[in-house]
Design a protein around this nucleic acid. Structure first.
Length: 573
RNA sequence: CGGGACGUGGCGCAGCCUGGUAGCGCACCUGCUUUGGGAGCAGGGGGUCGCCGGUUCAAAUCCGGCCGUCCCGACCA
């Protein structure tokens, strides 16, 4: 294409409120424009990248024998009511009514609709099946942010596997896992497959694909020695045993005055206090409307997703200080579970068997010491509630864990039979017995993957697209449109490269050289041919965007060289 | 939803405190010069100052309400 005829509105300045590199550069490069919060228009350049990502994902699915569908984006409430999710997913689903006042929703995922179709699969002989689509999802995110990274309307590849038994599901899950690894490799994304929480999808297990980036919103814990990796919502670590003193015997429970002490740190510092790991942290949480105490070691942090997963609670919030005071008689900073029997008490495993600890006494300015957890606290359930921290030993091999900020670009779930049972998707097995199909569901966010590539592949001049997703493979820059031999040469190279199947952009704008160079670097085309002052001598410059390396190449050889570079990048795909 | 910030041509901003003709840079149009790293000069076009209401002779500016956007926290591909 000729740049002079394209709509590529590049900007010298990024929008003031953009923070993430991908957000700034995709806007500056003329790839996207915001319509409103969480909704972006894809401009021609942006759509080309988006299409390329889509096609790589599509090939990944086709390679494992998946079949492409296209389902409605708008759903009747009835199918969501049948699965039970009309009530359970909450305000994240866009809901509205049609003129007949029938309830409708915009699809945020498609387990229900695919299960509905799967009711027509009636024999085990038709299994397994893998079905997918690439289609728009709508989620009323509480907080859209960072350009394409977190939006309310986005293209997602979602696939669904249907199997007779768990072994079949395990296989479908595994081939998806491998397909995803391959897809992210082709996108030049270093995605780590990590154990994850299943969240609203439910089910037996899930793996997330995480691209390390400071623009991400998730933390994963990973081990450099054995490869253990898990979202901090799931990750565990091995803790050293604690010596609680007293020769293994419990001391007396003793109440003592702690005027003004409101934090773990303050209690560490005060006379007669205790180091953080000898304290009990008491978190007052409201789980689906009912107040609950969550207990952790003083130096540990509560992970809310762990609390949600282990209790099945849908809505979790911290209690307001006023509510806390009303129920427990003290404000945060003086709370404890000693003697509490009228509220559920959940405790983290790290407190199991501990003695001689210090905790709040449920009266402002008073604490207890000598607390023996087994003796003094009525623990209803022992759970894994704490979030791991960097440096703690890997639960598998003991090597210190790293915590890495990541972008979640894919997530795969073993759903089991829940949806098939709810939707009535059953088959007859070899014995003529009706059995619910077992399902998996698998997602990749296309726009988020585009943003993730931009996050990982850019420099201070702009984007550096990998060949596999670049909007064009080569740009031919003519520094001066008055240089007739150069223009003629550029035109010739342009048509030759197109004949060779390259996606070429010819910068034929009547603009200054500096503008053209800066724009070509901003939009990140992998190779640039500069047809300029050396044209008269039969030479052009060939510049690789990512490395910045430039070579003078004979005019007669440049097409072959570029074609080779493009094809070799395509092959590595 | 809780906390913070902001809303002025396409983008980036000033003006607001102390009310009185809406301004700057980039971008855009015309002309001349320039021509391999975001050119110079001259001329020009474009703004309901987020919306509604109030105070006032007079509101971008002061007051109230609403809407929107962004950032930090609780959610997800």
């Amino acid at each position: 294409m000729r740049w002079s005829q394209l709509f590529i509105p590049t900007l010298r300045d990024a929008p003031a409120d953009a923070e993430a590199a991908s957000h700034k550069l995709l806007v500056r490069g003329g790839f996207i424009r915001q319509l409103h919060a969480g909704h972006y228009s894809l401009l021609p350049l942006g759509l080309r990248v988006h299409d390329k990502v889509e096609n790589i994902v599509r090939q990944g699915m086709d390679d494992i024998g998946a079949q492409e569908f296209l389902l409605p984006a708008m759903h009747p409430a009835s199918i969501w009511q049948r699965s039970g999710r009309w009530d359970s997913v909450g305000p994240e689903m866009f809901r509205f009514q049609d003129r007949k006042e029938a309830d409708l929703a915009l699809g945020m995922t498609h387990e229900e609709v695919f299960s509905e179709i799967a009711r027509e699969v009636t024999s085990y002989k038709s299994l397994p099946q893998i079905w997918y689509q690439i289609q728009w999802k709508f989620r009323d995110e509480p907080r859209p942010k960072s350009g394409l990274l977190r939006v309310r309307e986005f293209a997602m590849k979602d696939s669904y596997s249907f199997d007779l038994d768990d072994a079949g599901l395990d296989h479908a899950f595994e081939i998806h896992r491998q397909a995803y690894i391959r897809v992210f490799e082709r996108l030049s994304l270093n995605a780590l497959a990590v154990q994850a929480s299943s969240g609203m999808m439910g089910g037996a297990g899930s793996v997330e694909f995480m691209v390390p980036s400071p623009a991400g919103e998730d933390d994963i814990a990973c081990c450099g020695a054995c490869g253990y990796a898990a979202n901090v919502e799931r990750a565990t670590s091995t803790l050293a045993p604690m010596d609680d003193g007293g020769g293994g015997k419990s001391g007396e429970l003793e109440r003592f005055a702690t005027p003004g002490v409101r934090t773990i740190a303050a209690l560490e510092a005060v006379e007669g206090g205790a180091v953080a790991h000898r304290q009990i942290k008491t978190m007052v949480m409201v789980l689906d409307g009912s107040m609950t105490l969550a207990l952790l070691r003083g130096d540990h942090r509560l992970n809310l997703q762990k609390l949600a997963d282990s209790t099945g609670a849908l809505e979790i919030r911290a209690a307001e200080p006023a509510e806390t005071f009303e129920r427990l008689g003290a404000h945060p900073g003086s709370l404890g579970a000693v003697g509490v029997t009228d509220l559920p008490v959940l405790a983290d495993h790290a407190l199991n068997g501990r003695r001689n600890l210090t905790t709040g006494a449920n009266e402002d300015d008073w604490h207890y010491r000598g607390v023996d957890v087994d003796r003094d606290i009525c623990v209803q359930q022992w759970l894994d509630l704490r979030e791991v921290s960097a440096g703690e030993p890997c639960p598998v091999c003991g090597h210190p864990l790293e915590v890495v900020r990541c972008i979640e670009t894919g997530h795969i779930f073993k759903l089991g039979r829940r949806y098939a049972e709810a939707m009535g998707a059953t088959v007859l097995d070899a014995d003529g017995v009706n059995r619910a199909i077992t399902m998996g569901s698998y997602g990749i966010g296309i726009g988020r993957a585009v943003a993730a590539v931009a996050e990982v592949h850019h420099d201070d001049r702009g984007l550096c697209w990998p060949m596999s997703v670049a909007p064009y493979e080569v740009v031919i820059t003519v520094p001066s449109m008055r240089d007739e031999p150069a223009v003629a040469l550029a035109e010739q190279l342009y048509s030759e490269l197109r004949e060779q199947g390259c996606e070429v952009l010819l910068d034929d704008r009547d603009a200054r050289a500096g503008v053209k160079f800066a724009d070509s670097e901003l939009i990140g085309i992998p190779w640039r041919i500069t047809a300029g002052r050396a044209a008269a001598d039969g030479e052009v410059e060939l510049t690789e965007r990512a490395s910045g390396e430039t070579a003078l190449v004979d005019t007669s050889a440049v097409v072959a060289q570029v074609v080779t570079a493009v094809e070799s990048a395509r092959r590595q795909d």
